[in-house]
Nucleic acid binder design. Structure first.
Length: 272
DNA sequence: AATTAATCCAACCGCAATACG
DNA sequence: ACGTATTGCGGTTGGATTAAT
């Protein structure tokens, strides 16, 4: 029973990949594919790398159509929107950005986008409720892409405290609020995507919320700790602390969400 | 020019889910 | 049905690079 052991960690090479290793791996996979088994692949290729390492290198760097370099404003918006909806599900977010990897999106978020949002918020010196995603992104770029969020793209209740809180008065929402399971989470994300709540438009992808059920789905995705946070929306200590960059994921989510919920116009990005 | 701090990003690690025998 | 191997994911780290002093 069982399988052969994974890679021999003691004799596995670590650290940066050399061009020779890249070439070997790329050539082999392009010729033969992965064979459905990353663990045995390094041996076949003639590398002393762990299979996991090979997989990561292929997925994040070597495979075709990987897009490197600057993220566009459209991509920024997609990331922000999806982050507000589903949190740090980087693989899902990345899947909506052509040519981007989860690692890329995650790094970009952690090193740039998060700071961009926070520093813009700080610089405009608005009250939290007045900060909008649009103001942040508009301030961050000279040339805005021609994005249009229509009525059906985003419909928020002006009375809801955040996007993620949605229609928390419904019993269905409350039920899933209380006891979400891991499986439910996955199904809900799939639901959001399958139902076209995330839809692609050219090189941009939008999260579409055109019915209250979808809000419920998203809402039930929120972790318990986050729910507590959202239940205190608007009165979270330290949210606008001394260091504008020193925010947690919850705070950032809330910022993005707040910018959505305060919109009373058709388009949450255009609520000036 | 030298040193220190900040930033960026590739790669690693550990865990959970899934597949396999 | 169960135990183990494998995969996939998100968080974190470490080193290279760049900017500031």
């Amino acid at each position: 029973m069982g399988r052969s052991p994974c890679c021999d960690k003691a004799n596995v090479k670590k650290g940066p990949w050399s061009p020779e290793e890249d070439a070997k791996l790329k050539e082999y996979i392009e010729k033969h594919g992965t064979g459905g088994n990353w663990i045995t692949l390094p041996k076949k290729v003639g590398l002393t790398r762990c299979g996991k390492s090979c997989r990561l290198r292929w997925l994040n760097y070597l495979r075709p159509n990987i897009k490197h370099g600057e993220f566009s404003d459209s991509e920024d918006k997609i990331i922000c929107t999806l982050f507000a909806s589903i949190g740090s599900r980087w693989s899902i977010i990345a899947s909506k950005l052509e040519g981007r990897t989860d690692n890329d999106v995650k790094n970009y978020w952690n090193t740039k986008l998060k700071k961009k949002i926070m520093s813009m918020n700080h610089s405009v010196e608005m009250k939290p409720q007045q900060v909008t995603l649009l103001s942040i992104l508009q301030n961050s770029t000279k040339s805005s892409p021609s994005l249009s969020f229509t009525n059906s793209s985003f419909s928020y209740s002006s009375t809801s405290s955040s996007l993620l809180s949605g229609n928390s008065s419904t019993s269905a929402a409350q039920e899933s609020y209380i006891s979400p399971s891991k499986n439910n989470s996955k199904n809900q994300i799939n639901h959001v995507i399958d139902q076209g709540l995330v839809e692609e438009c050219g090189d941009a992808t939008f999260v579409e919320q055109n019915n209250i059920d979808s809000v419920d789905y998203i809402y039930s995705e929120v972790e318990d700790s986050e729910k507590l946070m959202f239940s205190n929306a608007g009165s979270v200590n330290g949210l606008w602390g001394e260091n504008p960059l020193d925010y947690g994921i919850d705070e950032i989510k809330q910022l993005i969400s707040t910018s959505a919920s305060t919109s009373s116009c058709n388009n949450f990005l255009f609520d000036e």
